[in-house]
């Protein structure tokens, strides 16, 4: 190989390395070789400048993170947890798939018990909410607003809380959801209709004690719920 072959081969090698020098991922030795060559080669210098500007344009963030980005990320994460929780139980992850068949039978039994429980709960709620004879069997669109004003507690739930756990917790605390979740994930809770005058304190204590509740606070009677 004569000297001009050598120069040409270095030129080709350097030209190929330029993007990795520009993004900081070339090795020390590669970087030295490129720097030495750039001192003598205007073509490669120009290419290096071009790639540097290209990278600057591609890596610049169009705007700083906003509060809305945070809210979008939180909402997206919540949807992912719902998916994980929804899919993990019936289709167990690979590592847990080797569980014994008695575990699988136990799981099936648990699902059946939960299903029976949900039917019973629905029946109980149906009975409680039955309108008096002669009352219309529909609700107007304005009804929820009226409902929301009954709210006595605001709560934010953990994304890990399952629907079943939430139903059980609300039943125990004798509460119902009257509004929400708001954009910030806040639920407005009210005593079940038969207990409209009950104090919020025992229910509040139950919510706060539950690991699936991030926070719960009473709503000042003078203020409206969100």
């Amino acid at each position: 190989m004569n000297q001009s072959d050598d120069v040409f081969s270095i030129h080709r090698r350097v030209w190929e390395l330029i993007p990795w020098v520009v993004n900081g991922r070339a090795s020390g030795e590669e970087l030295r070789m490129v720097e030495e060559h750039l001192a003598d080669c205007s073509d490669c210098r120009e290419e290096h400048e071009f790639q540097t500007r290209l990278r600057a344009a591609m890596s610049a963030e169009p705007r700083p993170d906003t509060k809305a980005d945070g809210v979008a990320a939180a909402a997206s994460l919540q949807r992912l947890w719902q998916r994980v929780d929804g899919e993990e139980e019936p289709a167990l992850p690979v590592v847990r798939r080797r569980a014994s068949s008695s575990f699988a039978r136990g799981l099936l039994l648990a699902v059946l018990i939960e299903a029976v429980g949900m039917v019973a709960l629905s029946a109980a709620l149906w009975t409680r909410d039955s309108p008096p004879p002669g009352a219309p069997l529909y609700r107007t669109l304005s009804a929820p607003a009226e409902n929301a004003s009954r709210a006595t507690i605001r709560a934010v739930l953990q994304p890990t809380l399952t629907l079943g756990e939430l139903q059980a917790l609300l039943e125990r605390a004798q509460l119902q959801i009257v509004a929400g979740p708001s954009d910030a994930g806040v639920y407005s809770l009210a005593p079940q209709p038969a207990l409209a005058v009950a104090s919020a304190q025992p229910a509040l204590a139950q919510l706060r004690a539950h690991p699936g509740v991030r926070f719960a606070e009473p709503i000042d009677a003078a203020r409206q719920p969100p």
Binding site: P19, W20, V22, N23, G24, R25, L54, R55, M58, S59
Partner: peptide
């Protein structure tokens, strides 16, 4: 490829 190199900063 360009995006992985220039935005994410990955090596070849």
């Amino acid at each position: 490829t360009l995006e992985l190199a220039y935005y994410m900063g990955h090596s070849c």
